[in-house]
Design a protein around this nucleic acid. Structure first.
Lengths: 357, 357
DNA sequence: ATGAAAGCGCTAACAG
DNA sequence: CTGTTAGCGCTTTCAT
């Protein structure tokens, strides 16, 4: 509170040698407005809602922008409007290749609506996911796309209270945080088991990464296989080999060797990713094992190379592109206060029958 | 220009029923400060420069943060401090797999320093790159990582005047915008030609994506091959086949077929990516062509699967992880006003000799 | 070591 | 359709 003497009859003085922050030097909306001879807000409108402005002014503002090379500061805009036009995505890792299609579609769809993607990699560990979350929420993104279900209660809570639209993907849950685009990993396992059973395979096995979702697929696969009678007497589960995520071709090759050493009689193998499956195919070829007759191979992901392998890889297709573009649409709609109907969807999967099984 | 009557002797009234913007409802630094019984700036210091604050206050602020679940708004912080802690990366496409390692390393290294990555895909077209740029600069990132050299003069200019640290990667140029981490595509072509020549191959060919850098590698390869005497009389260049980027396995398979139809006698093939090379290997196997004896195959990228193929793929290794982590370091250093020495480096490449050539 | 004031560059709210 | 004003939530600058 200033102790201005009460006999001061003038409006508060503007004088006290005021400090001033260094101006960035960059062109601001103010500069543009001044040049165009309008108020800053009018220039703002000319850029953001051109219809709300007369043609003459629109023209002048555009010219001023052109002349100055003005680029709006979205940090400032975002702070004022509470719309950052940023969307964060959390994926376990980009190098597994399984999520590429989704990220690709997400980036593209968002860009088409003027949004940018912030990428975070959690590395299959729930702990890092939690850390990432704080960094993400701090940027006040207009949406968050999660790969998988957010398990950690703190994470859920944080996201919930942040009010940011959330899309969980790549899995199903009865109580999503917000929106959801996924499929049932259990069903995948069951269907693949049925698929192999129908093709006469009776001695099936699994080769899986040790991540949550892959393990659930394999468990369901094993249970369905047992149920279908594809088990030796006394066996309660199907032979399996687990490798660390993210998977790669080498793990597929060594995995097959390990499996064969323990169970030389297996006639079909469900792999947790196409990369592992490629490894299995490669090792089988190297060992002179006939695919699919001697050993049927099923992958997951339908990566771009799957159809072009020799033999062409039978695999479970997850439509990552649809997951990505739908997630983008959900978030853009939400962030523009449009209602999102059917924000919880099971996009399913399909077994693409090719030559390896 | 208010027309306040000049007989007004009172200080401007504070009264007029003032509108107020809806508060976000979220916890702000102010709330935390109030709870801790300190000024906002002190709370700010407790969080950002803990050393500048007494232990007692530090404790109280931390408790208040804990209690309220406060998450700093980095948009606001970035606006005030001119540090967004965001770094933008522009890559042609994520789906080609060649840049994955770099993106992976970039994300990880940045995250370790508290920075986040914004991903933009330009799609191998310079035009989209220009568009992206505006969106990027608008967010005032603390750095921009470009894949390849920025060709467009407007783009260069924009970046230059923006004052944002820029790292161009994956290529060399005498006049980079700012920092540079790359290698010579011409040298790659030459070295591969020499490599094949030394292994007795005399009828070499190329299978390349139509992107700028790949084409330059192939051109240099062809010229070196000619120079080395690996040409039929009158030939001015080596046989080649061009496919659209991004490459995939299918293009490799069909590419080999096309090449063989036109030049049945080729004995070595330099592919512009490991994905294409995998396609070539697959097609060769399908056709019963012996690799490397009948046909040597060299890829580029040393993707994770290269070593595990059968035959293991001889390829040109580009250390994407180093590109990514170095770029991250450069940008973090710069953004913290630390000097970056040797900001222009040629990281080279190496030919990884395996079984396919 | 702590605080008051003044913005960063923009847009929401209200008024004409 | 255009303008005024008051912030968005934080940090800088200056002062103590």
């Amino acid at each position: 509170m200033d102790d201005t003497p009460d006999h001061n009859t003038e409006p508060p003085v503007a004088a006290p040698p005021r400090r001033s922050r260094r101006k960035s030097g960059g062109t601001t909306l103010r500069d543009v407005a001044k040049l165009a001879g309008v108020a800053p807000i009018t220039a703002s409108r000319a850029l953001n809602t051109p219809n709300a402005v007369s043609d003459a002014i629109l023209e002048r503002v555009r010219a001023a922008v052109e002349q100055t090379g003005y680029v709006p500061n979205m940090l400032a805009g975002g702070l004022a409007s509470r719309k950052s036009r940023l969307v964060a995505a959390v994926i376990p890792t980009i190098s597994g290749n399984v999520f590429l299609e989704m990220v690709q579609a997400l980036t593209a769809s968002l860009a088409a609506s003027g949004y940018q993607l912030m990428l975070g990699q959690s590395g299959y560990e729930d702990s890092r996911e939690d850390e990432l979350l704080e960094a993400i929420i701090g940027r006040r993104p207009d949406g968050v796309v999660l790969t998988g279900i957010m398990r950690s209660p703190q994470g859920r809570q944080r996201l919930l209270t942040s009010g940011i639209p959330v899309v969980e993907t790549w899995d199903l849950t009865p109580d999503p945080i917000d929106m959801l685009i996924g499929f049932s990993h259990e069903k995948v396992g069951e269907e693949v088991a049925r698929y192999l059973h129908a093709r006469g395979k009776r001695r099936v096995a699994t080769l899986s990464a040790n991540d949550q979702r892959a393990m659930r697929r394999m468990k369901a696969f094993s249970e369905a296989a047992i149920e279908l009678g594809m088990a030796r007497p006394g066996e309660t589960e199907v032979p399996g080999w687990v490798v660390p995520a993210p998977t790669n071709v080498g793990l597929g090759r060594s995995g097959l060797r390990e499996l064969l050493a323990r169970h030389p009689d297996i006639d079909a193998l469900f792999c947790s990713s196409d990369m592992v499956a490629l490894g299995v195919l490669t090792e089988a070829q190297a060992q002179g094992i006939a695919v699919p007759d001697q050993l049927a191979v099923v992958g997951l992901g339908d990566l771009s190379f799957a159809r072009d392998l020799q033999p062409a890889l039978t695999t479970v297709r997850i439509d990552g592109a649809t997951i990505g573009s739908t997630a983008a649409r959900f978030i853009v709609d939400r962030s523009q206060e449009r209602e999102v109907r059917d924000g919880i969807i099971d996009i399913g999967f399909s077994i693409i029958e090719r030559d390896s099984a």
